[in-house]
Design a protein around this nucleic acid. Structure first.
Lengths: 153, 153
DNA sequence: TGGGATTATATGGGCGTCAATGGGTATATC
DNA sequence: GATATACCCATTGACGCCCATATAATCCCA
């Protein structure tokens, strides 16, 4: 499985360490299994994360923008300076930077939600509520959801 | 990781020394890990820096501008003639030239912002405000910051 | 197939190393 | 000699590495 799926709630210890769920670790490429990137989610009070391979793709994309445009600086600043790389120790744990914990309201526990090619980290209660809300919103759009799920090809 | 990412705020001591963040030092090629170049940012009151290897890349960027335009001379002059090389000591610290400190309004603390292939040094408050402004511009103009971050391939 | 043995995961804690910072002193530049 | 800069050493706190334990999952064999 090469996608981040399922959800897990792990504890943050006194040193601030938290285990990246084992199944998430296995999604990371063997070459860079000890480093991930984290950044503030744009739409929600949560942290998003993924392997560093993605960072190179992002860099490439930004490089294609006009270097002397204002957009270039805006993207470059909003992305590169806001992305945080963090190391995963031998036991599969990492540190969530204080600023990101504040942003997500995380204190003693972190809820990991697989999102396919990336994952989100939430304060557990907020995360669960967000899941319910998402589902509720989807069901309201019953028709389109059914189409999406059952449509062939 | 071969990109400048994240942000750090370091102190400038009485002698004017400031630590280049460890993760930034690691981006510099092992061959020239004790030397960086600094220059005034064209668009913002900040200092930009990178390894000396990037000089060629900067030259290329400028060359892509219309040679006969006013911009060409302006960029060429304001960047190349203003580039300053500075050495990094054994502890990873360097001196920010007085002229550049003045330009950026830096006094006792320097904020380092990763920008991918280069980095910026700001007076901390100005730098943080700039980050907010950048993000606000992107979101308001619906430029797809989210796409940039999550898009596949 | 049941139950003990082995392995993996999440978690806790000790300790050495490194990064950031401060300061003394030698060397150099003028 | 005065100022600036590089090298050396010291301190502090954070982080990485190592080891240990508990619980859960898996395996293995009679």
């Amino acid at each position: 499985m090469d996608l981040f799926v399922s959800k897990y709630i792990n504890k943050i210890d006194k040193k601030g360490r938290v285990s990246l769920p084992s199944s998430f670790r296995n999604v990371l490429p063997k070459a860079n299994r000890n480093e991930i990137i984290l950044y503030k989610s744009i739409k929600t009070p949560s942290i998003e994360g993924c392997g560093i391979g993605r960072l190179e793709e992002i860099a490439k994309r930004i490089n294609n923008l006009d270097f002397f445009s204002e957009d270039y600086d805006d993207f470059s600043t909003s992305i590169f300076s806001e992305i945080i790389t963090t190391n995963i120790d031998k036991e599969g744990r990492f540190l969530i930077p204080e600023e990101l914990k504040l942003y997500a309201g995380i204190k003693t526990e972190a809820a990991f939600f697989g999102q396919g090619h990336y994952f989100q980290i939430w304060e557990p209660n907020k995360g669960l509520k967000n899941t319910e809300d998402s589902r509720r919103r989807l069901l309201k759009e019953k028709k389109s959801l059914r189409m999406m799920l059952t449509q062939q090809k």
